[in-house]
């Protein structure tokens, strides 16, 4: 192979058409309240774990919607399920259930 001193670069674009949104569908089907997240960050502000370690519960929504399962799996493991996020959520989302569903869903779709 010739050495050109440069290479072909891969796009960083989120390609919505190619995303695997099975997990997203599974979570929303079982916890419809999650549809209404507005990413206000109240959850992260009060999060027991996020106050001490690099964990952002708000980003669960983002990773799930962008179907970034790898980041999601890494992030979700840091949750201690204390439920404080659920207490402050202005949209009254059952966030703890969302976390449980994601955990279940990751295993489910990995095996499918």
């Amino acid at each position: 192979m010739g050495k050109f001193g440069f290479s072909v670069m891969e796009t960083r674009t989120v390609n919505f058409g190619e995303l695997d949104n099975r997990l997203l569908g599974y979570v929303l089907e079982n916890e419809a309240s999650f549809l209404t997240c507005i990413s206000c960050g109240g959850c992260t502000a009060t999060c027991s774990a996020g106050n001490l370690i690099d964990f952002n519960v708000r980003k669960i929504n983002l990773f799930l919607r962008r179907c970034d399962i790898e980041s999601l799996a890494r992030e979700i493991d840091k949750c201690m399920l204390c439920g404080k996020c659920t207490l402050v959520c202005p949209r009254d989302i059952n966030i703890r259930n969302v976390v449980m569903l994601i955990k279940k869903g990751i295993v489910k779709f990995r095996n499918e």
Binding site: S48, A49, N51, L52, M80, L81, C82
Partner: peptide, 25 residues
Amino acid sequence: HCCGFGFRQYMVQSNRGYSLSNSKK
């Protein structure tokens, strides 16, 4: 603020830092 006890924190030795850090706060 919570004292940090949290069953999930103190049950696993390596997680006890959570518990301690919350009390410290």
